[in-house]
Each structure stands twice: as structure tokens, then as C-alpha cells.
Nucleic acid binder design. Structure first.
Lengths: 136, 136
DNA sequence: CAAGTGTATCATGTGATTTAATACACTTAA
DNA sequence: TTAAGTGTATTAAATCACATGATACACTTG
């Protein structure tokens, strides 16, 4: 075999209380968006990544499937899973993430009746503060 | 009875795939942060809100408990649940939400190796666009 | 053919969430 | 005192998404 040296994922910690397959998909999405995963790059096989993450192949499958659904990946039976060659994948992935982030703060700001600008300024000021301010 | 006219929640839809008690807590948190729920305001009784949301009293209890834990509410047995009188509740609630929102975009930007400023600018441009841009 | 790909389908287990039904402790008005 | 309305606690059960584990199939390449 040894067609292409498959991309090797960086050390991953799967902690946060989010579905495993979502975490996996998210990490890959980010790697693509950040252009650290060039188009055409071969991903680890479902079984390999599963083993490396101490997870079931089924779970990795679900992550890959979601990303293929998004058009970020393309798979070929018997060959492997690759970052989509379609032009603009990185840009699309990046734009998508950026838009979601913006809409998030947009909604929060609207809920509070604030402008996005002011909300973020306030949030930045609170950096590292608060913790458990109220002594109760 | 009829001590105080308890605060009447606006029409609520409990759709998003988040725990019910989290959704309830979030809505109240926002109302407090936005100062639409002044300190000392009496909330609907656990049973009333539960009935109005077509939910179990247990679920509302959990939401109230979480907010009391955060110091946003204070409860008195036999009397009811109220917005904490402690000075600065609204500000604290608002600051907390703002900080979380900021840290969110902060992390996303870091993941992409972008500055928060640029991330949001990009996200704002994409407003309403994309949808399902890739034709696959 | 053999080894390595993706894919599909089960049955099963697990854990958080939610329901439902009670029961208890307290406060207030009648 | 009584009754109605508060919050609170407990228990059993149902549900559901998630993840596992095992197995089988389809395909590509050397």
C-alpha cells in the first residue's frame, strides 16, 4: 500500500461534554478552515483514527460522514477519506465558522438589548475575572 | 394569598436541543441580565411555571436551583422564588454572559489563527449567505 | 488473493434527562 | 386551627442520544 502518508492528527483531548463524533468533526473542520489541512490531504483511516483516539470506528465514521455532508471531505471506497479538492474549501469552512460565531454573539447581544460591539467590549473587560464573585 | 402579582413569563418556545432545565434557566438569566426582571421580582411558582411550560415541576426546580446557585435568585420556603436583591445582580448576570460570549469567539478565533476582530468582520459579511453554497 | 480502504447493520450498554407520583417543611391568609 | 400555596426531597420508571462491539459487505490496490 503506502500510497500517501496519511495526515497525522495532533494530540487530541476529548474532554468537553459534547458528543465524541462532534468533537472529532469540529477539530477536523477547524484544521481545514485554518488551512493546516490542505485540500487533497488524506485523513487517517476510520479504523486508525478510531484506535488512536481509543474510540469505535463507528464514531469516527459518523464524524467523517458529517464532514462529507458539509462538503469538506470526499471519500473513495477502498482508497480513503480526503479533504475535498473543490476550490475554496478552506475559505468556505472558515466563513461558515465565522458566520456561526458572529450569529452567536449577535443573538446574545440582541437578547440583552445591547450592540455586539458593546457586548464584546464588556466581555473582554471581564476576562479572567468574576469566577465566583458573589459570596452568597 | 395574592401577595404580589408574580412575574409573568413571555411566550416561550422550548425547541433547541438543549436540556429543558438549561433552556429555562437561560431565559431567566437573560431576563435578569437585560434588567427586564428587576431585583426582588417574584417568579412564578415552580408548579405554575411547570404547568405553563407543559413540563414537570421537577424540571423547573432544577432550573431555579441552578440560578440560585449562581446567586441570581433567592428562595424562601413557603413564600416563593425571587430575583436576588443583592446589588449588582443584573450587572453580574450581564457580565457573565458577555464574558462567555467573548471567550467563545476568542477561542474560535484562536483555533483559526485569526484575530477576534477579523473573525467577526468575516462572519458579519457572510450574514444570510452561504446556506448550502457547495452544490456537491 | 491479501490487505487495507469505506460502509452497513445489528444488539447492547450507558448516562443524562424527564416524567410521574408522593411526601414533607414552611408561610400566609381566612 | 385550617387550608391553600410556597419550595424541597425522594423514588421509580421511561426515554433518548450516544457509544460500544461484533460482524459482514463492497471496493481498490499491490
Amino acid at each position: 500500500m503506502t500510497l500517501d502518508p496519511p495526515w497525522r492528527p495532533p494530540a487530541w483531548e476529548l474532554d468537553p461534554s459534547q458528543p465524541l463524533y462532534e468533537q472529532i468533526a469540529h477539530r477536523i473542520r477547524v484544521e481545514i478552515a485554518a488551512a493546516r489541512l490542505p485540500k487533497g490531504t488524506r485523513l487517517p483511516s476510520v479504523r486508525d483514527l478510531a484506535a488512536s483516539l481509543r474510540v469505535t470506528p463507528n464514531t469516527v465514521m459518523r464524524a467523517y460522514a458529517e464532514l462529507e455532508q458539509d462538503g469538506l471531505l470526499e471519500t473513495f471506497r477502498g482508497q480513503g477519506t480526503f479533504v475535498a479538492r473543490e476550490p475554496g474549501v478552506e475559505a468556505r469552512a472558515r466563513a461558515r465558522i465565522a458566520r456561526q460565531a458572529f450569529e452567536h454573539v449577535r443573538r446574545v447581544a440582541a437578547d440583552l438589548g445591547m450592540r455586539v460591539e458593546d457586548l464584546l467590549r464588556l466581555g473582554a473587560e471581564e476576562e479572567g475575572g468574576d469566577e465566583d464573585a458573589r459570596s452568597h
